[in-house]
C-alpha cells in the first residue's frame, strides 16, 4: 500500500517535469495591484499558449528599485510617465518593435509621442487618469472644489492620504500654487510644513494605497486623496461618493507598458502588449479597473457609459488644469528626506 503510494508520487513528480518545461513559454508581468482583469489574462493564455506570471507593486518608487536590482525578472512592466522617463535615462528599457504590435493603431494619436517618451519608441500607453478627492456626500458639506478641504480641521480624523511621495507632496504643492515638479527646496519645504500640520492637527486618518477604495465604500472616512480609477470603482459600489479634480489643478498621468532591456522573453512581451491594445481586451480591462482608456476603439465599444462619465472621461477644461509629473532626477533625495520627516512627525 505504502509502496504504491510512493510509486504514484514519484510518477507524478516525473510527469510534472515536462510541465515545468512548458512553463518556460511564459511572460513575466510586473503590474500595479488590482490593475488588470484576470479574464483578459486567461484569454491571452488560451489564445497564445503563453503563461502569464503576474507580479504586483504598490508605488512607482518600489517598482523602480526592484527593476533596477533584477531587470531580467520582468518582461513587461507598467510604470507611470515620469518613471518611464527615468527608466529611459537609466537605460533600463528597450525600444519596442511596433511591427509586432499592430493593435497600436487603436491608441489615441495624441498619446503616441508624449513628453516622457519623446520618440515614442519605448512605451505603449495602457491607462491614464487623474489624482483627485473622493468624498462622501453625506459626510461633507457642499460640493468640494479645492484641496483646502484636506487641510480643514473640520474633517479631523476623516481624511485618507495616498502613501506615495510624489502624489502627496504634488497635490500640496499645487494647492500652494507651485509646480508639482518643483526643484526649489523652499517651495517643497512649505508643502512639507503643511502636510506635517495636517498630520499634527489629527486630520489624517491613515496613509495607505490599495486599501482606501474599499474603506471609502464602507464609509470609514469622509475624504480621500485617490487616483481616478479607484474613485470610479468606489462610486460604483456606493452612490454617496463623488470624485472631483480640484480647481487649483492636479496631476494627470499615463501608465505605459515597457519592456526591460534585460527581459528574457521579449517576443512574448510584445505579444502581450499587442493583446492588451486589442479593443475588446482594452474594454474588458477598462470596465474592470475604471481608469481612462487611451484606446479609441475601446471607447467606441463602451459608448455613452464611458463618454458621459466625468471621472473616467474628464472634460478638456479639467485636463487643462492638470500637470504631468516629470522625472526630478537626483532631487528625489530631498523629496525622500522630506517625506520621512512627514511620515515620522
Amino acid at each position: 500500500m505504502r509502496k504504491n503510494l510512493i510509486r504514484t508520487l514519484v510518477l507524478l513528480m516525473v510527469l510534472c517535469l515536462p510541465l515545468a518545461g512548458l512553463a518556460e513559454n511564459a511572460v513575466n508581468v510586473y503590474n500595479w495591484e488590482d490593475y488588470i482583469s484576470q479574464e483578459t489574462l486567461d484569454m491571452f493564455t488560451a489564445e497564445t499558449g503563453i503563461t502569464v506570471n503576474m507580479m504586483n507593486f504598490t508605488t512607482n518608487e518600489d517598482m523602480l528599485v526592484k527593476v533596477r536590482n533584477s531587470p531580467s525578472s520582468f518582461d513587461v512592466v507598467f510604470p507611470s510617465d515620469y518613471c518611464i522617463e527615468r527608466m529611459i535615462a537609466e537605460d533600463l528599457i528597450a525600444p519596442i518593435d511596433f511591427a509586432n504590435v499592430p493593435n497600436m493603431q487603436y491608441i489615441d494619436p495624441n498619446l503616441l509621442k508624449p513628453t516622457y517618451d519623446p520618440t515614442g519608441e519605448y512605451s505603449v500607453p495602457y491607462m491614464w487618469g487623474t489624482v483627485g478627492i473622493l468624498y462622501n456626500k453625506t459626510m461633507v458639506d457642499g460640493p468640494v472644489t479645492s484641496w483646502s478641504v484636506l487641510f480643514d480641521t473640520k474633517y479631523k480624523n476623516n481624511v485618507f492620504m495616498i502613501d506615495s511621495i510624489r502624489d502627496c507632496l504634488g497635490v500640496t504643492l499645487m494647492y500652494l500654487g507651485y509646480s508639482m515638479n518643483t526643484r526649489d527646496p523652499l517651495e517643497l519645504n512649505a508643502a512639507k510644513q503643511l502636510l506635517i500640520q495636517q498630520k499634527k492637527d489629527g486630520i489624517v486618518k491613515a496613509y495607505q494605497v490599495d486599501e482606501t477604495k474599499d474603506k471609502m465604500v464602507a464609509g470609514e472616512a469622509a475624504l480621500a486623496l485617490v487616483w481616478s480609477g479607484d474613485a470610479q470603482y468606489a462610486i460604483d459600489l456606493n452612490p454617496d461618493l463623488a470624485y472631483v479634480v480640484p480647481d487649483e489643478g492636479s496631476n494627470i498621468w499615463v501608465d505605459g507598458m515597457v519592456i526591460p532591456k534585460a527581459a528574457k522573453n521579449k517576443e512574448n512581451a510584445e505579444k502581450f502588449i499587442d493583446f492588451m491594445c486589442r479593443p475588446d481586451i482594452a474594454q474588458l480591462n477598462c470596465e474592470e479597473i475604471w481608469y481612462s482608456s487611451p484606446n479609441t476603439a475601446a471607447i467606441q465599444l463602451m459608448g455613452e457609459d464611458y463618454i458621459g462619465n466625468l471621472t473616467m472621461n474628464p472634460s478638456q477644461e479639467i485636463i487643462d488644469r492638470c500637470e504631468f509629473f516629470m522625472d526630478i532626477q537626483d532631487f528625489i533625495q530631498i523629496y525622500n528626506a522630506m517625506w520621512l520627516d512627514i511620515k515620522s512627525a
Binding site: D163, K199, V204, K205, A206, Y207, Q208, K343, S344
Partner: peptide
C-alpha cells in the same frame, strides 16, 4: 502600516 494606518513608523 496596517493597524496604525501608516501614521507612525
Amino acid at each position: 502600516r496596517i493597524l496604525g494606518g501608516g501614521n507612525t513608523m
